[in-house]
Nucleic acid binder design. Structure first.
Lengths: 148, 148
DNA sequence: GACATATTCGTAACCAGTTACGTAATGATA
DNA sequence: TATCATTACGTAACTGGTTACGAATATGTC
């Protein structure tokens, strides 16, 4: 079950990757979530981004390094809190953001299209997440075990 | 989107893992798919298993090594085809299979329970897989791009 | 029987996430 | 002000999958 979801996610990621390749754009799919947070000029710290995306700060940290290496993002130390490192798009990043705008929009539409085809699978996944929040798989299994 | 699914799958895997730990059973979640194929005494080759599970033979190969190291599975070279390596449960594997039977059944029920709570999320995921089969995300996005 | 092609499987390298743990900066409290 | 807890972030190791590639065996054709 878990593995199945993983494979599905891998598939989607690979598919998205192939789009950038086909279009000859130098953009890596794994950059997207962080990059997207910074689009529009907002400057955010690592933790702020990880909170927004619901992933670990480590994951953001790694993506950030890659984005900095690509010259799309810069970081500056927060003056009022030396622990925080604040990220923002470079001008090159902004330019790319503009260029990629239509593609991102198309991907959005494609996702919506897919979701419609699949009978609101995304909503179902959200429900799955919520159902797990209220009662974990292990709790559920524990109950069934005691019964037998 | 892809990442989100991945995290969900990780969560389920970790949850399943915690069950084995709680019950004090020495069984790793990643063993399950291959182990389950071999339950009931059937002997299968690496490729047969990977086909059944819809995963790469490499993944099966790695799991196999781990299962052999744990003494739960043995492999013998096929006499009529020297390339094939045929896997089967050892007697220890069979014993464990019996012991774990109720737990596996409980997990099955738990998954069904979860699915019901989530309004047939699993069916939705299946639909998502099918929808991707008929038209990939990149194809869909390509269409929307041309329109604009 | 020899050679080209296909199949089975394994090793190595990679991927995007994670946890575990350490460090530096901040904040709170005595 | 000294110390202790908390917070922000980074590095390292691991996870469960993948692709790329190579070796051994089998198969088909001349």
């Amino acid at each position: 079950m878990g593995g199945r979801l993983r494979r599905l996610s891998d598939r989607i990621d690979r598919d998205a990757k192939s789009i950038y390749e086909k279009m000859g754009v130098e953009f890596e799919q794994r950059w997207f979530p962080v990059f997207n947070c910074l689009r529009g000029g907002e400057a955010l710290s690592v933790t702020e981004i990880s909170d927004r995306l619901g992933i670990s700060h480590v994951s953001v940290s790694v993506t950030r390094k890659s984005l900095e290496a690509a010259g799309l993002v810069t970081s500056t130390q927060d003056k009022s809190d030396g622990r925080r490192s604040v990220l923002a798009l470079t001008s090159r990043g902004e330019t790319l953001s503009m260029e990629l705008g239509p593609l991102f929009a198309a991907l959005d539409l494609a996702a919506a299209d897919l979701n419609a085809d699949a009978g609101n699978a995304i909503t179902a996944i959200e429900r799955l997440e919520k159902a797990l929040d209220t009662k974990s798989l292990s709790e559920r299994a524990g109950l069934f075990l005691k019964e037998s």
